[in-house]
Simulated assay, not measured.
Amino acid sequence: MSKDPKASDHESDYDAQLKLLQIELVKLQREIISGNLRLLVILEGRDTAGKDGTIKRITEHLSPRETHVVALGKPSSHEEGEWYFQRYVAELPSAGEFSIFNRSWYNRAGVEKVMGFCTEAQYKLFMASVNEFEGLLVDSGIQIIKYYLDIDKKEQAERLESRKTDPLKQWKISPIDEQAQHKWDAYSVARDLMLQQTSSIKAPWTVINANSKKHTHLNLIRDLLSRVKYSGKDEKILTVDPDVVMPCPPLGSKPPKLAS
């Protein structure tokens, strides 16, 4: 069966745009290294929202020595006895480094809260202290950019089913994923509280409408590049789609219209 020529054109257009953005990312990394800068990007979101794929597109042509992707697993019994932020502090970028957290300390505001993996007191302590913690990091010279990837319930269901049937994706299936649809409403409530209470001036949230993976990749990278300073920036290719990239308002305000 021959391919739809329009589909092929769309694919090649995506590849062309992505290549230009990846060239900009290389420029950015050169600036980070030469300027001894420290950049931390936090990616949170619904299960199956596309964090792994987005990170792959960001890091594909970057130096692995100065680019660190952090995806911490379940804390050990020793780590459970530590200050909550302690194991994440060890992963923060040093001078000249770019770190991406594939999930982060915001596990406490999301999956731990919804699944009962933390106490109510632990949750409240986290919510009361995370803004101050991030403020200290920013004041120390770390630029923090936070993204929440959001998808609707139908799209999530389709992606979960794809994981079950695609042998290359089955490593992604987890018991937590199995609860994503059943606890959809609880995750929505936890998400809204997190965005309302932790979108600070120093470290605001940006919500990404991630129903389209390709639009997610292109627009998130454009937004990321537009937020950081580096030499030779090509501003004309960094315009984002406002239906995909939705900055969160200040603390206490309602987040953008999200999937409920």
Rank of each mutant, 00 (worst) to 15 (best):
M1V: 15
K3N: 05
D4V: 01
D4Q: 08
D4N: 15
A7C: 12
E11R: 03
Y14W: 03
L18G: 00
L20E: 07
I23E: 14
E24K: 08
V26N: 06
K27G: 11
L28E: 13
Q29K: 07
I33D: 03
S34V: 05
N36Y: 12
R38Q: 09
R38K: 12
R38E: 05
L40C: 03
V41H: 02
R46G: 03
K51A: 01
K56A: 15
K56Y: 13
K56G: 13
K56Q: 14
I58R: 12
H61W: 13
L62R: 01
S63V: 10
S63I: 08
P64V: 09
R65P: 06
E66T: 09
T67C: 07
K74M: 13
K74N: 11
G81V: 03
E82W: 15
W83E: 08
F85C: 02
R87L: 07
Y88H: 12
A90D: 11
P93C: 01
A95Y: 09
G96F: 00
G96W: 03
F98T: 00
I100L: 04
R103Q: 07
Y106G: 05
Y106C: 04
Y106L: 06
N107T: 10
A109I: 03
E112I: 13
Y123T: 03
K124F: 09
F126H: 05
M127C: 01
S129V: 05
E134F: 02
E134R: 04
L137S: 10
L137V: 10
D139G: 11
D139F: 13
S140A: 11
G141A: 10
G141C: 12
I142K: 02
Q143R: 12
Q143M: 10
K146E: 00
L149S: 02
D150T: 02
K154A: 15
E155R: 01
Q156G: 05
E158V: 14
R159E: 06
E161D: 14
T165M: 10
D166K: 08
L168I: 14
K169G: 07
Q170T: 11
Q170L: 11
I173Q: 10
I173L: 15
P175Q: 11
P175D: 01
K183C: 02
W184K: 04
Y187P: 00
V189K: 10
A190E: 04
A190L: 01
D192F: 04
L193M: 14
M194K: 02
Q196W: 06
Q197E: 09
Q197P: 00
Q197T: 06
T198I: 11
K202D: 07
K202H: 11
K202G: 06
K202S: 10
T206P: 00
V207W: 09
V207M: 12
V207L: 11
I208C: 05
A210T: 00
N211C: 09
N211G: 08
K214M: 11
L218A: 12
N219Y: 07
Y230E: 08
K236L: 10
T239A: 08
V240M: 00
V240K: 01
D243T: 14
M246W: 00
M246S: 03
L251D: 02
K254M: 13
P256G: 09
K257H: 13
L258K: 15
A259C: 06
S260W: 09
S260K: 09
S260F: 06
S260P: 05
